[in-house]
């Protein structure tokens, strides 16, 4: 069982939703990220999404765009991100670590070389925003060979037929993008998310995370009542940005916010109808 699958099984048994904070690796410097990652775990992260900066982040809003620009200016590269992951993994064997980024840096490194290096660095899953399953073959084979879960996004525009196809290629978890738009946009509608999750669960037994637009603890709590994982990105990166004048404070400041999110997620009333109706072999009753 992969580390991600194991973590979701534990959480399910405990009746909790996973908390998945996102940070851009190297924002504002690799050293800050190095100190921040263990703080995210102390604050209650189950899985960390580590953003790989890219010069042309087409699916990201201004907050994560600026984070990527800061990281690139600080010399961050895909190899550098893997170095950070390896350092983190040396002291933490249990927290899930998922890379999220765009395809071209992976193409530049070489698909097979990337998969091997990511596995060696302790990466558990990879999300490539601009790689739909139709274009995935060159990367999916080496990822699977190295035991890394390919995680795919689903969106409000994804048909049930596509969901089924995507779910066949995915492992670890599915990531439902809660709104039409870019990261950090607008406000999401918890009721329509619940409806969408019911559709996803109709086609797949994989855990489902929800992200894009979860900006505060209250929204996190509402999403945690229906989703298996709550992903928070821009709201965290914004707190990094607000502390740029004193980078020493970034780990504490972000850690405090993530701790608030943890409390909110754990306060969620799990076992709402959508979740309870889920028929899945071997899953514990929530």
């Amino acid at each position: 069982m992969s580390r991600l699958a194991g973590r979701f099984a534990e959480l399910r048994a405990a009746g909790r939703a996973a908390l998945v904070p996102f940070v851009t690796a190297g924002d504002p410097t690799p050293d800050v990220t190095r100190r921040l990652l263990p703080r995210l775990v102390e604050a209650g992260a189950d899985i960390i999404e580590l953003g790989v900066p890219f010069s042309d982040p087409m699916a990201d809003g201004p907050v994560i765009q600026r984070a990527g620009e800061r990281a690139l200016a600080a010399g961050m590269t895909l190899s550098g991100v893997l170095d950070l992951a390896r350092g983190f993994r040396a002291n933490d064997r249990s927290t899930g670590l998922v890379l999220m980024g765009y395809l071209n840096p992976i193409v530049a490194m070489g698909h097979a070389r990337f998969a091997a290096a990511a596995a060696a660095a302790g990466i558990d899953g990879v999300i490539v925003v601009d790689m739909p399953p139709e274009e995935g073959e060159p990367l999916l084979a080496p990822l699977r060979e190295h035991g890394i879960d390919p995680v795919f996004l689903l969106s409000p525009t994804t048909s049930v037929e596509r969901m089924r196809r995507i779910a066949q290629e995915a492992s670890g978890f599915l990531y439902y993008v809660s709104l039409k738009g870019i990261t950090g946009a607008g406000h999401l509608d918890a009721a329509s998310v619940a409806e969408a999750l019911a559709r996803v669960r109709g086609v797949s037994a994989l855990p489902v995370g929800v992200g894009f637009g979860i900006a505060d603890a209250d929204t996190a709590r509402r999403i945690a009542s229906v989703a298996d994982a709550v992903v928070v990105g821009s709201a965290i990166v914004r707190r990094v940005e607000q502390a740029l004048d004193d980078p020493e404070r970034i780990p504490d400041r972000v850690g405090g916010f993530v701790a608030d999110l943890r409390s909110a997620v754990d306060a969620a009333k799990r076992g709402a109808p959508d979740a309870a109706e889920r028929a899945e072999p071997g899953s514990a009753k929530r």
């Binding site: 395809l103 790689m131 739909p132 139709e134 996004l153 969106s155 525009t157 994804t158 596509r162």
Partner: peptide
């Protein structure tokens, strides 16, 4: 699939695949 030999294709975020 939108390919010209090994070039072209459709590398976009999932939200754009439907449209």
């Amino acid at each position: 699939a939108g390919r010209f030999g090994e070039f072209g294709g459709r590398y976009v975020a999932e939200t754009l695949m439907g449209p």
